[in-house]
Structure formats: structure tokens, C-alpha cells
Computed example of a mutant assay.
Amino acid sequence: MKTTNHLQDKVVFITGASSGLGEQIAYEAALKGATVVVAARSLDKLKVVKENCEKISGKKAYLFSLDIADPEEIEATFNEIIETVGPIDVLINNAGFGHFESVLTTDMSIAEDMFRVNVLGLMYTSQLAAIHMADRKTGHIINIASMAGKMATPKSTIYSASKFAVIGYTNALRLELKPLSIQVSTVNLGPVKTSFFDKADKNGDYLEKVDKLVLDPKEVAYKVVKMIGSSKRELNLPKSMEIASRFYTLFPTAGDYLATTLFDKK
């Protein structure tokens, strides 16, 4: 594969990179010449991703075992990356999980775990990255949120709440870091064809039901990496769901109807 100089020698740190979208973002960053740093809990899968990144870029890549729900582990990992690799130029917060179930039967321990991973873990990594980027007056933080954070649907109460939180946090972070020349962007996605749904969808048929809306992780990764270094505040995919979310905001009553009919496939 031929690389470009879009991210030549930039350190790109990706969480949740052992599979799915995170893995594809790692490959796309490597293709653009980045020094790729991947982190997740599964070291065996990460080793494969690291090796593939090195084949693509022709340069050393790095891996770190990381439980994004553990603040002390996050801080230790950041310190080690900066000491062994160098300053982080780009942080892509991709780690997260979902769970689709009626609020009446959901075990609230799932809600606590989800907020530790989807929200608090993201906040810890964003803060640490921002602190180091502020010293150099440069950098880009990209937080992977969800269209569920713009338009909630039944059986995604906890997940939607976590992604609403991510969007709100990222919007405020963007404003706060702008004077420091640090870019902050949100990626709001509909369903992506990854192993995410192995855990989120207990019935196992959600992707089939929303087949026309399902995104290809490679195509999404290309668009995410293309954002790096730009002032683009949001990437919303697919376009049909972006339009629906705008309609939902402008016409909430009708939006509720759409959310419980057209987009309620869980």
C-alpha cells in the first residue's frame, strides 16, 4: 500500500483499537504516514493490529494494554506513551460499548459500567491529551459518539444517555480548547458493521433490520482520518440519519414518532 504525507510522523493514539472501527482507523492512519499507537484490553488482537500498521506504514507502531474504565491505568498509559513514543498529536477516543434492552429490565450495573467506559474514560483521556497538547499549542481530539446521542430510540436509554453526554462534553471542550489551537471534533455514527453489536444486540438481528443504514467501517475510518487537522466540528453518518436528527430537533413530536417507528428496530 502507498502512503501519503497527510499524517507523516504524527503520533496518533486510538483507544478501542483491537477490532472494528478502531482497527480500521489505525490502518487508515498508518496509510497516511502516522506513527500509530493502539490501545485496548485484548493484547492478542492488538498485536495483530500493530503488526499490520507496521506493514502498511513501514514504520514502528506501538500497543498498550488499557482498561479505559480505570483512571490510574489511563494516566500511566499516557505517561508511558509520551516517554517511549513522544507527544500525542491526535487522540481518537473510540473505546465504548452498547446495550439494547428495556429500561424496565436493565441491570443498572450495566449503566454504571457504560458510563465509566463511554463517558468518564473518554473525559480522562481527553483531559490528559489536552494538557499535553496545550503546552505545544497544537493537536486534535476526535471523540466517537453516536447518532443515538442526537436522536434517542427505545431500548437504548443508557447508551443514548452516554452518547448525549459525549456530545455535550465534546462541544464544550471544543470551545474551551480553541484559543489553544487544539481542534476538537465529534463523530456521530449510525450502525456500523462491527462486533459492537455482538454485545449490544441480544437478539442478533438488528443489523439485518437496518441493513440500508449500516455503515462500512473502512469507509467510516477513511472519513474520520480525513478530518484530522481540519476545523470540521462534526462528522454525521449516514446522511439519512443526520437529516432525521435535524428533523427530530426542529419537530420533536414528529421526531418521537419517527424514533418509535422508522428507527426503532431493536
Rank of each mutant, 00 (worst) to 15 (best):
F196N: 09
V103L: 03
K226W: 10
N79R: 14
N188G: 08
P179G: 07
L258G: 10
S240M: 12
I25V: 08
A29T: 04
F196M: 07
V192K: 14
R136D: 03
V48C: 00
Q183H: 14
A111Q: 08
T194Q: 08
S160K: 13
Y27P: 07
A40G: 02
D256E: 06
R233V: 03
V36Q: 01
M123L: 14
Y206F: 15
D107R: 04
V220E: 05
I144E: 11
N118D: 14
N118I: 15
P191D: 12
M147A: 03
A34K: 00
N94P: 07
E234N: 12
V166A: 09
A148F: 12
Y248H: 15
Y159Q: 11
V166S: 04
G204E: 03
P238Y: 05
K163M: 10
F78E: 00
D67R: 10
N188V: 06
T186S: 15
L122G: 01
D9V: 00
E54D: 02
A134F: 06
S18Y: 07
A161L: 12
I88Q: 10
L215T: 05
I141W: 13
V37M: 05
G190C: 13
K47P: 03
T105H: 11
K202H: 01
Y222M: 12
K265M: 10
T194I: 08
M133I: 07
T153C: 02
G96E: 09
E28M: 12
E101D: 11
V225M: 02
V192S: 14
G33E: 04
K232D: 11
S231Q: 11
Y257H: 11
A130P: 10
A129W: 08
D216C: 05
I131N: 09
K265F: 10
S146I: 00
L21D: 05
